[in-house]
Simulated scan of single mutants.
Amino acid sequence: MKQAYADELLLTLKRAGSILKATGVPFALAGSFAAYAHGGASSDHDVDFLVRHQDLETIVSAFTDAGFRIEHPPEDWLVKAYDGGQLVDLIYRPIEIPVSDETLEQASMMSVGPLSLPVLSATQLMVHKLLTYDQHYCDFAPGLQMARSLREKINWVQVRQDTKSSPYAAAFLVLVHHLGLAPETVGTDG
């Protein structure tokens, strides 16, 4: 990622995080910036936050007041907020599961650049990544990068349990086992 663009995206992360904190509604940093907070690779295109659907009106109003341009895309699981050319995804239903209090309670406060923000756990990041795989999208490269960089922070047994309904996740778990990124029991039926 080019440094100037990275700096702008980090500034957007700081602005968006500050706006969300000021609203008082629960939220969590997700996506590649959450992986970055855990020691993984940084984002190259947007900032993702998990929010509850019932808080959208408050959040959208706060972002609008702060000068962000709001877009309601045809996808019915997020709202997009633009800070100039920088994108913030406000996601309320990732992986077809609504964001709940329980989802957000699993986040922990971490330093992300100059802010302390609630950040989704490495385990939940991996679960979310694996549950995006389906017959239309099955590029394991980003998931492998995440698994490689966060492997010690991921509870692989929990990942296996939370993704057991997905054959794509099962295939991924076999692969990470064979690559030595996850314990033996993760990639097998044992």
Results as ranks from 00 to 15, higher is better:
residue 118 P to M: 10
residue 28 A to Y: 00
residue 75 E to N: 10
residue 64 T to Y: 05
residue 54 Q to R: 14
residue 100 S to R: 04
residue 97 I to K: 15
residue 60 V to Y: 02
residue 30 A to H: 09
residue 100 S to D: 07
residue 49 F to R: 00
residue 42 S to Y: 13
residue 116 S to M: 10
residue 67 G to Q: 04
residue 87 L to C: 04
residue 28 A to E: 07
residue 27 F to M: 03
residue 19 I to D: 00
residue 121 S to Y: 00
residue 12 T to E: 09
residue 109 M to K: 15
residue 66 A to G: 02
residue 27 F to T: 04
residue 58 T to N: 06
residue 10 L to H: 13
residue 74 P to N: 11
residue 102 E to H: 12
residue 105 E to H: 13
residue 27 F to E: 03
residue 45 H to Y: 13
residue 123 T to W: 08
residue 119 V to N: 06
residue 20 L to W: 00
residue 100 S to G: 08
residue 85 G to D: 13
residue 89 D to K: 02
residue 59 I to A: 02
residue 125 L to R: 08
residue 47 V to D: 11
residue 120 L to M: 14
residue 49 F to W: 02
residue 67 G to V: 10
residue 12 T to N: 13
residue 14 K to V: 02
residue 84 G to K: 07
residue 25 V to Y: 07
residue 48 D to T: 03
residue 26 P to K: 15
residue 42 S to A: 13
residue 49 F to C: 09
residue 89 D to S: 12
residue 30 A to R: 08
residue 107 A to Y: 12
residue 113 G to C: 09
residue 117 L to A: 01
residue 116 S to V: 12
residue 82 Y to L: 09
residue 59 I to P: 05
residue 44 D to N: 14
residue 120 L to T: 11
residue 72 H to L: 15
residue 80 K to Y: 08
residue 64 T to P: 06
residue 74 P to R: 11
residue 37 A to Y: 06
residue 28 A to F: 06
residue 113 G to W: 10
residue 122 A to R: 01
residue 64 T to Q: 11
residue 55 D to I: 09
residue 108 S to R: 14
residue 103 T to G: 05
residue 92 Y to P: 06
residue 59 I to Y: 00
residue 13 L to G: 08
residue 107 A to F: 11
residue 79 V to M: 00
residue 117 L to P: 00
residue 35 A to K: 00
residue 44 D to S: 14
residue 98 P to E: 07
residue 43 S to Y: 02
residue 88 V to I: 14
residue 110 M to H: 11
residue 119 V to A: 03
residue 101 D to G: 04
residue 49 F to I: 09
residue 80 K to S: 10
residue 60 V to C: 08
residue 100 S to A: 08
residue 84 G to Q: 01
residue 36 Y to Q: 11
residue 112 V to I: 05
residue 27 F to N: 08
residue 40 G to Y: 03
residue 11 L to H: 13
residue 112 V to L: 01
residue 71 E to L: 07
residue 108 S to C: 06
residue 111 S to H: 14
residue 12 T to G: 12
residue 103 T to H: 07
residue 53 H to Y: 10
residue 24 G to D: 06
residue 95 I to E: 09
residue 18 S to C: 08
residue 33 F to C: 06
residue 94 P to A: 11
residue 11 L to F: 13
residue 65 D to V: 15
residue 103 T to S: 07
residue 88 V to F: 06
residue 17 G to R: 07
residue 27 F to Q: 03
residue 28 A to N: 08
